[in-house]
């Protein structure tokens, strides 16, 4: 269970749907869309304002991050970026108390491992809950759903005792990875998806052909689960990447993840915000790149989670 404060999508209340039917039904609804539902200029203007508001803090960050240490202190604000972003970024990267490259590598390692593990175990369990009949499956699934509401980050004290005093993993990435290997939300997500998008006939056909259970899972379950698994991987990756609380406790400046490294930038001996905010931009770039590549999936993932099944 992750110790993130990540919010699940609304799949808790309303299960995700397979993408194809959703797209079709949306199209059909659109076909019936009313003439009055045409957006006004005001609507576009509003959205432009909202998006500018969403981007402004990042722009401000870049503005300060590309200036010099004195630009933050000027009372008259310069609204155009200065030319020092690269040199500020270089200062962040070379700051020995930040360990930027190591932090970047660590964030990649942790987020990828956790996403891969959560997706694997969630697909396995989700397939079993959705498509296999076995004694106790109902109460088990209810248990899974119930645990989604349990804020596991409240267990930090024992987690600390276990990870550091018993296992000696203080400062070790494993201490961040191990507690996040499975996610109740992930199991629920895959269960909902597979129960709706994978026809029982496909499984039966594979079984009649003499495929073993695991072969059936591999050749029928996994392909069917792929779209949902990719979205789950995205969500878990982002949640893990941005996670701070537990890594902040168990890791340190010698071996940080990006958010932990960022937190070190701020509490520096002297505070140069042009460097702090250059660091903010640097650490955000990887996820922005991911967003450009996979933002569409992210949007549809959130929306599929919300559509009433």
């Amino acid at each position: 269970m992750t110790a993130t404060t990540e919010r699940p999508t609304s799949a808790v209340l309303v299960p995700p749907r397979p993408p194809a039917p959703v797209r079709r039904s949306r199209a059909s609804r659109r076909g019936r869309a009313l003439a009055s539902n045409k957006p006004s200029a005001l609507g576009y203007a509003f959205l432009v304002v909202v998006i500018l508001g969403s981007l402004f803090p990042l722009y401000w960050s870049f503005l300060i991050g590309s200036g010099d240490s004195s630009s933050i202190n000027r009372q008259d604000i310069d609204w155009l970026p200065g030319g020092n972003f690269l040199s500020n970024a270089a200062k962040v990267i070379n700051d020995p108390s930040v360990n930027f490259w190591r932090a970047l590598a660590n964030s990649l390692i942790v987020s990828t491992t956790v996403a891969a593990s959560v997706v694997t175990f969630s697909t396995l369990a989700g397939y079993a809950f959705a498509k296999l009949r076995f004694r106790g499956s109902k109460p088990m699934l209810i248990f899974v759903i119930a645990t989604m509401a349990v804020p596991t980050q409240l267990g930090i004290v024992p987690l600390f005792i276990a990870m550091s005093q018993w296992l000696g993993l203080s400062g070790n990435l494993l201490a961040v990875i191990l507690p996040a290997l499975v996610s109740a939300f992930g199991v629920f997500w895959m269960t909902q998806y597979l129960s709706q998008s994978l026809p029982d006939e496909l499984i039966e056909a594979a079984r009649v052909d003499g495929a073993s259970m695991i072969r059936t899972f591999w050749h029928v379950g996994v392909p069917a689960a792929r779209p949902a698994a990719a979205m789950l991987a995205l969500f878990i990756f982002i949640a893990t990447w941005t996670n701070f609380f537990w890594p902040f406790i168990i890791l340190d400046s010698s071996n940080p993840t990006l958010p932990v490294a960022l937190s070190l930038l701020q509490s520096n001996f002297f505070i140069d915000y042009s460097i702090v905010l250059a660091g903010v931009i640097l650490s955000t770039i990887p996820l922005l790149v991911l967003f450009v590549v996979a933002g569409k999936q992210l949007v549809s993932g959130i929306m599929q989670g919300a559509v009433k099944g």
Binding site: S164, G168, I249, D252, Q266
Partner: peptide, 21 residues
């Protein structure tokens, strides 16, 4: 390894002393 401030160093020191490693 440079911690930023003495406060950070202190928290880290006691946490790691408690951790035993």
């Amino acid at each position: 390894n440079k911690a930023a401030t003495s406060n950070d160093a202190r928290t880290n020191y006691f946490t790691k002393l408690g951790a035993g490693s």
